[in-house]
């Protein structure tokens, strides 16, 4: 396999090809070796991550959305320069990727897909759910977005267009769901509870006040 001990690292960035960070590669190395020998079960790793990572991550994104709902100036900033607006709330990704916010309207529903699990705005959404990384979601979201949304229990009227955004390593999308009716006078903290992770990926809508118990 390895023909060079003093490997020359090619630091030219070729954006047509993938790149793993040092830590990513080290983790993958260990994981693949241990899985081959049966010391770990890769499927169990996903479950473990999901057990622990439930509410923490998406809270950041929810507070961004809630602020955009109540603060017109912030909303404008978010739509024009999401990277800076999100950063102003203290949520920064070490990867420094470009964030783009896309807002749902009465006529357009946005949803986000990526073919690489790392292309996910985890500074605001936490870790990607397993289904987001699954091949069926990745391929079907582009071909049949309405079918995928229906699987999530979201059936949109025919006059609402669905726009699918394909994340890249450089650009990640955050969906700004529509503010639910019946929330006049709510403060940011209350509103944030209505913003689910799926609403910010576009595979769901924000909750209604009645959904909170």
């Amino acid at each position: 396999m390895s023909n060079d001990h003093h490997h020359d690292h090619d630091h030219d960035h070729d954006h047509d090809h993938s790149h793993l960070s040092e830590m990513d590669a080290r983790v993958r190395a260990l994981e693949s070796l241990l899985a081959e020998k049966g010391y770990i079960d890769p499927a169990a790793l996903n479950e473990i991550v999901e057990i622990y990572e439930t509410r923490i991550g998406p809270q950041n994104g929810a507070s961004v959305i809630a602020k955009a709902w109540v603060d017109e100036g912030f909303n404008t900033w978010l739509m024009e320069d999401a990277t800076a607006a999100i950063h102003s709330l203290g949520f920064t990704s070490r990867q420094g990727e470009h964030m783009v916010a896309v807002a749902n309207t009465e006529h357009t529903h946005h949803m986000v897909v990526c073919t690489l699990c790392s292309c996910y705005p985890w500074s605001v959404l936490g870790l990607p759910p397993t289904w987001y990384k699954s091949p069926p979601y990745r391929s079907r979201a582009v071909i049949d977005p309405r079918g995928v949304l229906a699987d999530f229990g979201l059936v949109l009227p025919d006059d609402v267009a669905v726009e699918v955004h394909d994340s890249t390593a450089e650009t990640r999308y955050l969906v700004v769901p529509k503010r639910p009716d019946g929330t006049q006078g709510w403060d940011e903290k209350q509103l944030a509870r209505l913003v689910t992770r799926n609403a910010m990926i576009g595979t769901g809508l924000a909750l209604n006040p009645a959904d909170l118990t």
Partner: peptide
């Protein structure tokens, strides 16, 4: 003794190489 330092290092390089030959957007 679950693995060795050299095996881990080799595998790490293999992952970097795999990433370099994988077109963006496909699983590595």
């Amino acid at each position: 003794g679950l693995s060795s330092t050299s095996a881990i290092k080799d595998r790490e390089q293999a992952w970097h190489a795999a990433a370099a030959r994988t077109p963006h957007g496909e699983p590595i």
